[in-house]
Write a protein that binds this DNA or RNA. Structure first.
Lengths: 198, 198
DNA sequence: GGCGACATACATACCCGGTATACATACGCG
DNA sequence: CGCGTATGTATACCGGGTATGTATGTCGCC
């Protein structure tokens, strides 16, 4: 419901039509997250269905201006007052991939980690460059949001890079202890333990 | 496509039916990400539609056993070989919320940050406790994947906590520089600049 | 012995987010 | 003048997430 609440919060500052909301949303996030315009309209339609917004008027040129309702304002307040729950963290493709990779036979996990680190570092460098460029034009007021978003992405990318290092170290440790007390897997076609009592 | 590829990779180890795949997936991720069984069936149906898996047989009790196809095996290999792209990072609700909050009038951003930090730290502590418990039973082989997932979640939570600290510091700095060279916003009901040239 | 609780197993409906595309008008510019 | 670009709305389709319905099997317990 992130999009819905975000648009609702923007409408809380005054009536607007779809295209305006898209522009306002992207301005806040510095263009990192281009919002698909179709999503704006479907989200507005759903919010209207749920009584959070209402059509203020429809101009002759087709512009549909929405305004927030009391229920919508209440919902925005509730959103800002309650934290984003982290007890059921979102599934992450990289984590899933690695979790499956380390337990699957015949996957070159080391290569996987290195390929991913390349990608992650490339992203990190691009973000850092963006941050340096942004610092050149210290537009203190309106750019704060964009700086925060940028730094969030940088923190995340750094955490991912550190995790990849950690994974590599753990794999090396595991390999060292495994090869010393058991024979390595002979080949990659181990299709055993496929019985029904999995 | 994370779920699809994950299930495909599991099927690459041998034929299985839906419920088995759910159990195997959750075992790999240590139960952090309980996979909804419905999603398994819809994902398998789509993978079958796309020729990545095929029904091996349907038992009398209704069990539908799937096996991976050559195209599916190829797809799994491609998945493991290519990195997860990070150039268009996933939208995060917390980041959106804060980006909107700092630019919206009448939002107590400081309270928002503190509430969120509570939640994030609670999550971090729960994860740390899980990790300590997991360390008690060092089942080196099968638990590696679960350890990796856990540590990924911990790294992410730590990054989020550090970012929240960072946000708070930046807000304090911005407030200090703003109050010294401009009058503070008189009230929270600024509904100006809503013209069409947004 | 039977009954309830729980695990196993499959299927469907619904919602939201993400993306592409269609279609129209306005505006600047070579 | 017309072509590209920006503005503007709308719809279709897909995948992921969640809830729910409906069986059967199993195990313990009164």
């Amino acid at each position: 419901m992130a999009i819905r609440h975000g648009l609702l919060a923007l409408l809380d500052e005054g009536p607007a039509y779809g295209y305006q909301l898209k522009a306002a949303f992207e301005e806040r996030t510095g263009g990192t997250w281009p919002l698909n315009i179709g999503q704006v309209y479907t989200t507005l339609a759903r919010a209207e269905r749920d009584g959070l917004v209402a059509q203020l008027d429809v101009a002759a040129d087709g512009r549909v201006v929405y305004e927030i309702t009391d229920a919508g304002r209440h919902e925005v307040a509730r959103w800002f007052a309650s934290p984003v729950r982290r007890d059921a963290p979102a599934r992450d493709e990289l984590t899933i991939k690695l979790a499956v990779a380390v337990t699957a036979p015949g996957v070159d996990v080391k290569a996987l980690v290195q390929t991913q680190r390349s990608e992650t570092m490339r992203t990190l460098q691009a973000l850092t460059r963006l941050k340096i460029d942004a610092a050149d034009r210290p537009d203190p007021e309106s750019d704060t949001a964009w700086h925060l978003v940028l730094e969030r992405l940088i923190f995340d990318a750094e955490a991912e890079a550190r995790w990849l290092d950690h994974v590599e170290a753990r794999l090396l440790r595991a390999a060292a202890s495994t090869t010393s007390d058991r024979t390595p897997a002979p080949d990659g076609t181990d299709r055993a333990n496929q019985g029904s009592a999995r």
